[in-house]
Simulated scan of single mutants.
Amino acid sequence: MKAAVLKAFGSPLTIETVPDPVPGTGEVIVDIAAAGVLSYTNEVFSGARKYLLELPVIPGPGGIGRVSTVGPDATKLAIGDWVFCDPTVRARDDVLAPDITLQGWSARGPGGLKLQQHFRHGSFAQKMMVPTENVKPIGAIAASEAAQWCALTTLLVPYGGFLAANLQPGETVLVSGATGKFGSCAVAVALAMGAAHVIAPGRNQAVLADLVRRFGDRVRTVTLTGNEDDDRERMKAASPVPIDCVIDIMPPSVSTSVVRAALMTVRGCGRVVLMGGVGMLGGAGLELPYPWIMRNCITIHGVWMCPPDATVKLVQLIRAGLLRLDQFATTRFSLDQANEAVVHAAEHAGPFQMTVIQP
């Protein structure tokens, strides 16, 4: 099969013919129809993000394709099924705190790295071997729709956060990082789940205006000034009711003071979800006040990716028309153009823009 291979950090992908993956028990082969390229892929490939990723590797976190081979333990999957390849691979020998690797992307700790050594290669290839439990049926689609369904890779991240926070219909949410790619998806997902209002702070006024244009007056925007205390009060004032839940999905480059200002808008007995990259590259800690957390009974959830059943639930929101995939502007590249796709993704990192490789 043909695949894009990363051989060294800082080097371009090479397009090669490599052996087809050979499945064992508990594994499925998927013919990849489309694989999304994240906006910060260039930072991973350069080594700037310092992800645990053993090389050489076929990268690519998640993809859309059709089942071509199933193992003997698969009882529902059938050849030809359209599926999402969930990149969040969990070790099977510890149900309480499993080691995790993001297939074709990164690992969490030594155990995750060990898991990565087997479930190593990602979706920038014509075929991908995936753990049976990570092959998630999405129902019948036309082949031309596969690229749009790659939005699942981005949408599932904030959806996992809201599931952890037990977001309920009618609640009010603040999205810290609302003008970014993942944050704007968090706005869309929160509304699809029934949030009454979404408070969307940011500095990019054009993006803030676009969120209101897309979703209407349930979105309340706040232009940030950079002053932590002032911004906190401005965000609180933008909400017609106390804020039930705050999700932070800021990138590593953002100051912790910006994150802290957003998190401390949550009401007493409210929930905070941390899903961003702040602090991953060093720097000051978040420094939330202990008395504020304790006396206000604040619940803080650290969430990496999403639970195993999240894809099925998110697909139901899409099928019900509550979450629309057609709002994503999608640019397609062939596998031979993988390096161009990486550059394009970085240059088109805005909300509801998607870069896709179609092997």
Rank of each mutant, 00 (worst) to 15 (best):
residue 90 R to Q: 12
residue 121 H to T: 06
residue 225 T to G: 11
residue 339 N to K: 12
residue 346 A to C: 08
residue 230 D to N: 06
residue 177 G to I: 03
residue 266 V to G: 08
residue 243 I to V: 10
residue 315 V to R: 01
residue 327 Q to F: 03
residue 259 V to Q: 14
residue 258 V to C: 07
residue 218 R to E: 00
residue 67 V to C: 06
residue 118 H to P: 05
residue 134 N to P: 11
residue 99 D to Y: 07
residue 103 Q to W: 05
residue 273 V to W: 03
residue 24 G to K: 15
residue 103 Q to D: 07
residue 15 I to V: 15
residue 306 C to Y: 14
residue 231 D to C: 04
residue 285 G to M: 05
residue 198 V to P: 10
residue 331 T to Y: 06
residue 286 L to M: 12
residue 64 I to S: 00
residue 223 T to L: 10
residue 1 M to D: 05
residue 266 V to C: 10
residue 272 V to P: 02
residue 317 L to K: 09
residue 269 C to I: 01
residue 189 V to Q: 01
residue 267 R to N: 05
residue 140 A to Y: 06
residue 75 T to Y: 03
residue 259 V to F: 03
residue 193 M to D: 02
residue 48 A to C: 08
residue 209 A to P: 00
residue 115 L to V: 14
residue 105 W to P: 01
residue 7 K to T: 09
residue 70 V to D: 06
residue 31 D to Q: 13
residue 230 D to K: 15
residue 2 K to W: 00
residue 307 P to A: 11
residue 323 L to C: 14
residue 92 R to N: 13
residue 342 V to P: 11
residue 85 C to M: 15
residue 147 A to C: 04
residue 81 D to T: 12
residue 193 M to H: 04
residue 252 P to S: 14
residue 82 W to I: 02
residue 348 H to S: 13
residue 346 A to G: 14
residue 114 K to Y: 01
residue 355 T to G: 09
residue 267 R to S: 09
residue 193 M to R: 07
residue 219 V to H: 04
residue 109 G to K: 09
residue 161 G to S: 11
residue 256 T to W: 05
residue 204 N to Q: 12
residue 257 S to Y: 05
residue 196 A to M: 00
residue 75 T to H: 12
residue 140 A to P: 01
residue 142 A to F: 08
residue 144 S to H: 12
residue 38 L to T: 10
residue 221 T to P: 06
residue 134 N to Y: 03
residue 29 I to P: 00
residue 327 Q to K: 01
residue 141 I to V: 07
residue 348 H to Q: 13
residue 207 V to T: 15
residue 354 M to Q: 14
residue 191 L to I: 07
residue 166 N to Y: 07
residue 281 L to F: 03
residue 3 A to I: 00
residue 288 L to V: 12
residue 51 Y to C: 12
residue 124 F to A: 10
residue 343 V to D: 15
residue 331 T to A: 11
residue 86 D to M: 06
residue 82 W to H: 01
residue 304 W to C: 11
residue 316 Q to W: 03
residue 27 E to H: 14
residue 121 H to K: 01
residue 243 I to R: 01
residue 212 V to P: 10
residue 228 E to M: 11
residue 331 T to E: 13
residue 130 V to D: 03
residue 335 L to S: 08
residue 23 P to D: 06
residue 198 V to E: 07
residue 227 N to K: 12
